[in-house]
Design a protein around this nucleic acid. Sequence first.
DNA 1: GCGCCTTTGAAGCAG
DNA 2: CTGCTTCAAAGGCGC
Length: 272
Amino acid sequence: MTDQNPMDPMNKDQVQYPVQNLPIPVDLFRGGELGPNLYHTLFLMNFQRNMLLANLTPNLLGFPPLIPGFLPLPILATPLLIQNPSVEDMVAPDDLANVVHQNPSVEDVPNVKQASRSPEDEEHQRIKKPLNAFMCFAKEHRPKLWAELGTSSAEIIKILGQKWQELSVEEREKYVDIAQKEREEHKVKYSGWKATRNYRSKPRKRMIEKRKPVKKCRARFGMENEHLWCIKCLQKKRCSYQESIDNNADDKMGIQNQKPKILNILIQKSVN
DNA sequence: GCGCCTTTGAAGCAG
DNA sequence: CTGCTTCAAAGGCGC
């Protein structure tokens, strides 16, 4: 690299760009028209990419190119450069992230932990679920909380859960909108994809342990013991045993004493 | 290397 | 229709 290299971040003629305080050679802003933010963003993305590239292969960043025919990416990607960039012309980090998100490359498609997958399913199984509103909120606030508290992720998400509950409807709306947009884009982008494609073949042990006892007579007594079902279950409505358990949460009698009322059964049988 | 922790909400399946 | 389960995110921890 030479001292005249306009791509040299150590060049004196440069400005401090607000986004991540990246030093941008001021030469690159001269002589062009006022470009839209997108070009600016592309410029930044490519500049950052080239900076990374330079760490690996410094010669590639040289200008004029050391390899004949090679042009540094920022020149190719920014046909329009602004003359005097103002704060209004800058792209906020959030917008930058959005632009990256809108243009995912193959590398951006994440992998899903999956023990076995058939080749035909692979493409679908790599696609992750879109984030819900709370996850969008957590993603935005987690880094700050992490920096402040430095506690475990489980603790941080607990705090975020509390903060989420404290948010007003208006405050939540922002994240609900983001999540909805993501869901819609996801649907369009990956039509036919289902969240169940990412499910493990075997249920998790923790979930099995957490599973609540069966709540309906059909499951509790079986099809062959229909005479033991409560009237609500016979009518395919909400199980009355469970309703009484829910209504008497402190009742220590337990499920064993929640017997069906034979009268109800007789009434039901006579109706049928 | 994998599962768990911990939260909320969406999605999908079973009953 | 209701209830239940899984998984999105994060990173440390235990097995």
